[in-house]
């Protein structure tokens, strides 16, 4: 962590990075624009598209094997105060990675943290949760409720 930034709890950062990665690109962009923040930054790594090799485990829990690749966009930048923001986002949307890296940097900064948390991260997390619940509800309706037909005399 850079010297100018208060130490950020790993779990908290993992949470917001996950929310940013899972967010719909358009929804993230709309909410980011609405905040009207224009921080100055320098790229450490321009947004770039590549692949990551997905690893699975044999039998789901055994030794690892290479399953196939997926597309991924990453970005790293440094705010003028020195804070480093990074993003690793599935897919090929450079703007999404850039915005996520900026938000990651600003969230480490005490003066922006609470506002970003309440106006960006929490609403996006709620949307993700709602989408999951909606999918679960449809799935659950297809669950088989077995009943046994009694046959014979016994």
């Amino acid at each position: 962590m850079s010297a100018s930034t208060a130490p950020v709890e790993t779990a908290a950062r993992q949470h917001w990075m996950a929310v940013l990665a899972r967010a719909d690109s358009a929804q993230l962009d709309t909410r980011w624009q609405a905040l009207n923040l224009q921080p100055e930054y320098q790229f450490i790594r321009q947004p770039e598209i590549g692949l990551t090799m997905l690893r699975g485990r044999v039998g789901g829990s055994g030794s690892p094997f290479n399953m196939g690749e997926m597309t991924l966009t990453r970005c790293a930048l440094r705010l003028t105060c020195g804070t480093l923001g990074v993003a690793y986002i599935a897919g090929r949307n450079k703007q999404h990675a850039l915005t996520a890296a900026l938000v990651d940097a600003l969230l480490q900064d005490g003066s922006y943290h609470d506002r970003l948390q309440s106006e960006l991260i929490e609403p996006l997390a709620a949307i993700y949760k709602k989408n999951c619940a909606a999918r679960d509800a449809k799935t659950r309706a297809t669950q088989v409720q077995f009943f046994t037909m009694v046959r014979g005399e016994d």
Binding site: G50, G56, R135
Partner: peptide, 23 residues
């Protein structure tokens, strides 16, 4: 197309036990 992209490393082994089940 795949051959034109750089590889940014490897994922952690996927945990399919915690899959959000759809079937």
């Amino acid at each position: 197309y795949r051959t034109t992209l750089p590889r940014f490393g490897y994922s952690e082994p996927l945990n399919t036990e915690t899959m959000q089940i759809e079937r």
